[in-house]
Amino acid sequence: MGLDYQLVLWNKQKKRYDLVLFLFIVIYLLGFAVVTFTTNANTSLETLIIRAFGSLAILMLHIILMIGPLTRIDKRFMPLLYNRRHFGVLMFLMAAVHGVFSIIQFHTLGNVNPIVSIFTSNLDYNSLTNFPFQVLGFLALIILFLMAATSHDFWLANLSAKTWKALHMAVYLAYTLVILHIFLGAFQQETSPLLLGLVGLGATIIVALHIFAGFKEVKVDQAKVSEEDGWHYVCSVEDIKENRAKMTTCAGERVAIFKYEGKLSAVHNVCRHQGGPLGEGKIVDGCITCPWHGYQYLPGNGQSPPPFTEKVETYNLKLVGNKVYIDPKAHAPGTPVDPIKI
């Protein structure tokens, strides 16, 4: 959280993350060049650049798309999630190099505008299998550009959460377009079963991970809750650690119940910044602190401490003996609710 926007909120972990990414990119490109020139010395520099950056971008996109579901399946993958934004922007830059060089190599030699040439050199739009693959790649690149261009916190704050999220979920469409771009393009010529197998394996892993993680969450959503007069039983007080939370599900939404200073308060689990799980964070200086980027909320009213304006929904709690119950009806974001004393 800050009082102004920064280019990048650098910290030690981000610098390390970016250094590893940068080294990975350099090693990959050099390795690709060495293998290419060893196996086919006649390869032109333009072809090498197009293939090296294209394959690197696809590899990076696969890794990026695995991060989300992996963190849901095992928390040890969390460090990969914190700086996924940088990973995404770098991946777009690699894809952009591939795209620009491809456009120059294949579409700038005639007297037709290069962008027009991408869309009109093959007009077989009615065919499913003969669909112009260049168009698929171009559209995927546009989506990735939109995402990279709006990845800064300014856009999160000013595009509205719904719009920003919808835009960034377009990565799934971009991924589908990229896979088809490969199979209708490069594979028409490079029919090596190894390459086919690798991309197929990558796609299978990603789809399987997402579906597995998704249905794991369904189990949590559908967990049986014992109810009494409209109140849902959560746990006993001793089950909640000091300055930490116990998570439960109310009407499909995850709620975090925090224990702090001899009191209990309940807030919606999703951080307003980038959707981090507040319930996995802790109380620091009297504030619920999101484990992803440090955004804070006062437990008594779900509001960020002034001058910040983020708010999350709050919930009523009651204590019967040492049993904690929650009213599943959420209050509007930022509504004060008296914490219950233990």
Binding site: L3, A149, F154, N158
Partner: peptide, 27 residues
Amino acid sequence: IDPLIAESKFSVRLLLFPGTIATWPFL
């Protein structure tokens, strides 16, 4: 549209330029 930008360095606004080209109707 965002007072926080006034407190921020000009380089931040430059970083926002590509996104502005993409989302100008919203802005």
